[in-house]
């Protein structure tokens, strides 16, 4: 079981709710994923479409909602979005995202730390989305972040564990859960992150834009379970030299 800020999750796959082709596909995929935590964003309502409401589509008994601050370009905008999320009945949890550059969507480390300090002071449970920077992860942990969410690769790129080495260091050092977020494009990427000892992964694009999002959600579900099992089982050592798996003795009869 994974525990973040006192709340336990049996699934270590967190899912995003963006980019799905329809609310029905999203609901079916998220149910198949086994995920218990889903991220949502905050936006102006569409005045022409009052019925367009994600809260009607997803069962809040089944899914814990993690509002994000996506779209915030600095700490002030992020703090404002977090307060709005709380006012909307979204609870005290927030996935803190501060992305000033729309081209890379890379997070601003300075404003992320500032916003974390502010939001922790206001009683939020803060899960900051960060570049895979081990020192920043420690600073955020000290500032009271409930988890850290280092990126595998930039959002929506499906490039996999580009930041593998830095994430290994973050996992070694962290005392809060590490959730690998962004860029995981295939179930094998998610399995790798879990094998390394990540506490959870967050996947959105790779499921939402798959040819069959429901089947892909199932594939990620199984990959995360497999990766976690492998981590707990203890992976064999990596070696430069070959080591025979079959006995080297008892071969006299063929010589």
């Amino acid at each position: 079981m994974l525990t973040i800020a006192g709340k336990t999750f049996s699934s270590r796959l967190f899912t995003g709710t963006g980019k799905f082709s329809s609310p029905q596909v999203m609901r079916e995929a998220l149910e198949r994923s086994g995920s218990e935590m889903v991220t949502v964003a905050l936006r102006r309502v569409d005045l022409a479409d009052p019925a367009d409401d994600i809260m009607r589509v997803l069962d809040r008994e089944r899914f814990f909602f993690l509002p994000n601050t996506a779209g915030a370009r600095n700490h002030k905008e992020a703090v404002r979005l977090a307060r709005l999320a709380r006012a909307s009945g979204g609870g005290d949890w927030v996935k803190l995202e501060v992305t000033p550059d729309p081209r890379t969507l890379l997070p601003d480390p300075v404003d992320t730390l500032l916003a974390t300090e502010e939001l922790v002071k206001e009683g939020f449970v803060v899960l900051p989305y960060i570049n895979a920077d081990p020192i920043l992860a420690l600073r955020l942990q000290e500032a009271g972040a409930a988890a850290v969410m280092p990126l595998a690769a930039p959002i929506g790129t499906n490039r996999g564990l580009v930041t593998r080495y830095q994430i290994e260091i973050i996992i070694q050092q962290a005392t809060v859960p590490v959730v690998v977020d962004a860029g995981l494009g295939a179930p094998s990427h998610a399995a790798q992150a879990m094998e390394m000892g990540a506490d959870a992964v967050l996947v959105n694009t790779a499921i939402a834009v798959a040819g069959d999002p429901v089947a892909m959600a199932d594939a990620f579900r199984q990959a995360v379970i497999a990766g976690r099992l492998a981590f707990k089982a203890g992976l064999g050592r990596v070696s430069d030299q070959a080591a025979a798996s079959s006995p080297s003795s008892g071969l006299e009869f063929i010589r």
Binding site: T17, K19, V40, A41
Partner: peptide, 25 residues
């Protein structure tokens, strides 16, 4: 806050923002 919706009244020129959760990652 939700409890204020029934109490607060709109005046000329009031600026309202209506926001809700949408799909996101």
């Amino acid at each position: 806050g939700r409890f204020e919706y029934d109490e607060r009244r709109l005046a000329e020129g009031a600026e309202l923002e209506l926001i809700r959760f949408v799909g996101g990652g």
